[in-house]
């Protein structure tokens, strides 16, 4: 905390803070792990932590896009489950079927995202409800169609989940590759800029001549596709598709938590992918350390809950202090207490 306070005057970005917190968590983790007689930095442990980041990472990248656009996606766990099943059943253990399976799974995921996006952008249904509803729709389909795990991934496909390059799992590298693509999309393309504009303030964006719907639709489509990729990765790790794998991981709320932990403003318009990756990593390290400590599963939830609130409180306070004056009026958050609101009040 002292370090934080000292660094504050030097325009530390919110992503900077995220990574500072990550370093703190890493140091703490290394100490605790050492106290339990383990080596935190051993190949096996690093690989375990990175594996922990990859699936939540995919989903959180997508969730970042949706949140930046001012929406939410609660249907991601079901999309991931569906993608794992579609992929697994289409592959049916045959290497030759992999391309078709990947296209099918991601195509269906994209369609789901398209529907989400259209409902949010054109029917004006809040993302929370639109995707909650979509989640229910998919849950019903999954429950009706699949009575347990189905399909099977051929060995070549399973390697994605099993292969390590040094201590780094291939799945993590793919996830980072997707992160780079999304970062390019956000920084280098017009629609990426519009995404920020629409999420920041839709009315201002519209008055500046930005069509507000396409960025929202795109964000939802990409979010679903990334959830579909998470599903395919789960398929690679599990070797079978599973109708409950998405819900098992609780990826809906945890991805939102990771995004906000990564410094993205829940109301939209402010934040970035790098921060999200930091947030995901914080979760992964935390989970790893708690498992090494053999902390009771219920208490693990307590710790997660507290860390989420405390960590976000650290950024939020800082945001409130450092927010440039020009955001004072326009940044009114939609479903959050605008941290912008006349900053000095608290």
């Amino acid at each position: 905390m002292n370090a934080l306070a000292r660094l504050r005057p030097t325009q530390l970005t919110s992503t900077g803070i995220v990574y500072l917190v990550l370093v703190l968590v890493l140091v703490l983790g290394a100490v605790i792990t050492a106290a339990s007689g383990r080596n935190f930095f051993s190949g096996g442990n690093i690989s375990a932590i990175l594996t922990g980041t990859s699936i939540l990472g995919f989903i959180a990248i997508g969730q970042t896009l949706v949140i930046l656009a001012g929406s939410l996606d609660l249907s991601v766990p079901y999309v991931a489950s569906l993608a794992s099943l579609l992929g697994g059943v289409t592959m049916a253990g045959q290497t030759g079927n992999i391309p078709l399976a990947v296209v099918t799974a991601l195509g269906v995921a994209a369609l789901i995202g398209l529907v989400n996006g259209l409902v949010v952008a054109y029917l004006h249904v809040h993302g929370f409800i639109a995707t909650l509803g979509m989640g229910l729709i998919l849950a019903g389909y999954l429950g009706t169609t699949y009575k347990g795990s189905a399909g099977s991934a051929p060995r070549d496909f399973r390697l994605i989940g099993a292969l390590n390059i040094g201590p780094v799992p291939l799945s993590t590298i793919i996830m980072l590759g997707c992160a780079v693509l999304v970062i390019l999309l956000l920084r280098r393309t017009r629609i990426g800029h519009h995404l920020y504009a629409v999420g920041g303030n839709k009315d201002v964006a519209r008055l500046s001549g930005v069509r507000t719907q396409p960025p929202v639709v795109l964000a939802h489509v990409l979010c679903s596709v990334l959830a579909g990729m998470a599903g395919l990765l789960l398929l690679a790790r599990l070797s079978v598709g599973s109708p409950t794998i998405g819900t098992q991981g609780g990826y809906d709320l945890m991805s939102i938590a990771a995004v906000v932990l990564g410094g993205t403003v829940l109301a939209g318009g402010k934040g970035n992918i790098l921060g999200t990756l930091g947030g995901v990593a914080i979760f992964a390290v935390m989970d790893n350390v708690m498992s090494v400590m053999q902390l009771n599963a219920f208490l693990q939830d307590v710790v997660r809950g507290l860390v989420i609130v405390i960590a976000v409180a650290v950024y939020a306070r800082r945001n409130a202090d450092l927010r440039p004056a020009r955001f004072e009026r326009s940044g009114a958050a939609r479903h959050t207490p605008a941290p912008t609101t006349a900053g000095g009040a608290a």
Binding site: A257, V260, I308, A313, A316, R317, H335, T336, P337, P339
Partner: peptide
């Protein structure tokens, strides 16, 4: 603390 209520109540 200026934490979005979605996150606060998710934490609680």
């Amino acid at each position: 603390l200026k934490v979005p209520s979605f996150i606060v109540t998710l934490g609680t």
